[in-house]
Simulated assay, not measured.
Amino acid sequence: MIVTITGASGFIGTNLIAFLQQKGYIINSLSLKHQNWKNIFPLSGDAIIHLAGKAHDTENTSDPEEYFIVNTDLTIELFNEFLRSESRDFFYFSSVKAVVDSIEGVLDENISPNPLTPYGKSKLKAERYILDADVPVGKRVFIIRPCMVHGPGNKGNLNLLYKIVEKGLPWPLAAFENRRSFLSIDNLSFIIARMLDYKNISSGIYHLADDKSLSTNELIQTVNLALDKKPKLWRLSKKVIENIAGLGDRFRLPLNSERLKKLTESYVVSNLKIKSALGIEKLPLSAEEGLVKTIKSFRKEK
């Protein structure tokens, strides 16, 4: 099977390509940065996986219009080329942030989207164009909404937790009660490979997440487990922590309001629809196993 992938040099792209190549897939990398990419890289093969996009800027310094140029307009151009091509499948990697920025309860595919950021709005606008299109018979179109993806080579907010635990510092946010979904790159790659192989999976929107959500305190305990350390959980006043995060906004400290929100908010994502479509009860890696693998990779990268 021949698969064309955009955003091939990114974290998800490099890991997904390695996974698919091990299974015998032939990969074509398509760079959308070339102005004449349609002529330079003619689309061919069985499937197109569109990973390229402008990521959410947590510093809020990006021009909002850039999100729509990259995440919406370029996606529409690529999708229209797919419709004219002989490729069978189109995977658009959107995000759960195209749905809502915060959620009470569990997020599934039935929710009515209401994103607040330019990032989420640009992703949703592309989704709606794709879902409203007249897709030829024989083609499948998937909207993939992953939650926070992690794995070796991608540190993100997990790196902050790693540094705190590695240095033997206590975790001062234990007073915040929450639950949050994560997605290991191994589970993501497994799901995409199965969707490529299983021809009976219907087009539609699919949320991707590990089987179990974790609280931040459980996450800290998992990081300690990966580093063979005992967890140090401090239940400091929430108000004090929020004030410190406010200072982080002004002076660019490691802990700012955006990062505090990411570390302590609840954001639980259901993966029941995709598992039902794949006919499986659980994903290859548990949430804890995937996180331990990621955390241990940080030490090797030093």
Score class of each variant (00 low, 15 high):
182 F>M: 04
94 S>Q: 02
183 L>A: 09
173 L>A: 13
9 S>I: 00
228 D>C: 02
181 S>K: 07
175 A>C: 13
5 I>Q: 02
93 F>V: 12
295 I>S: 03
78 L>H: 03
193 A>N: 14
184 S>T: 14
94 S>R: 01
126 A>H: 08
223 V>D: 08
265 E>K: 13
55 A>F: 02
298 F>D: 08
204 G>M: 04
213 S>I: 05
15 N>D: 04
244 I>V: 13
201 I>T: 02
157 N>F: 04
104 E>R: 10
110 N>K: 14
263 L>W: 04
102 S>F: 12
76 I>L: 00
55 A>S: 15
45 G>A: 11
21 Q>V: 14
275 K>V: 02
300 K>G: 00
257 S>W: 02
188 L>N: 10
236 L>K: 08
127 E>G: 10
152 P>R: 09
227 L>Y: 02
176 F>Y: 14
92 Y>E: 04
74 L>T: 13
7 G>D: 00
51 L>E: 05
145 R>N: 15
260 L>V: 02
72 T>K: 14
69 I>R: 14
127 E>Y: 07
246 G>F: 11
76 I>N: 00
81 E>C: 12
48 I>L: 15
152 P>F: 06
33 K>H: 13
262 K>C: 00
196 L>K: 05
252 R>C: 10
12 I>T: 09
145 R>V: 08
7 G>H: 01
278 L>P: 12
268 V>A: 11
245 A>I: 04
195 M>R: 10
198 Y>V: 11
39 N>C: 05
10 G>K: 08
292 V>T: 07
181 S>T: 10
164 I>Y: 05
41 F>P: 01
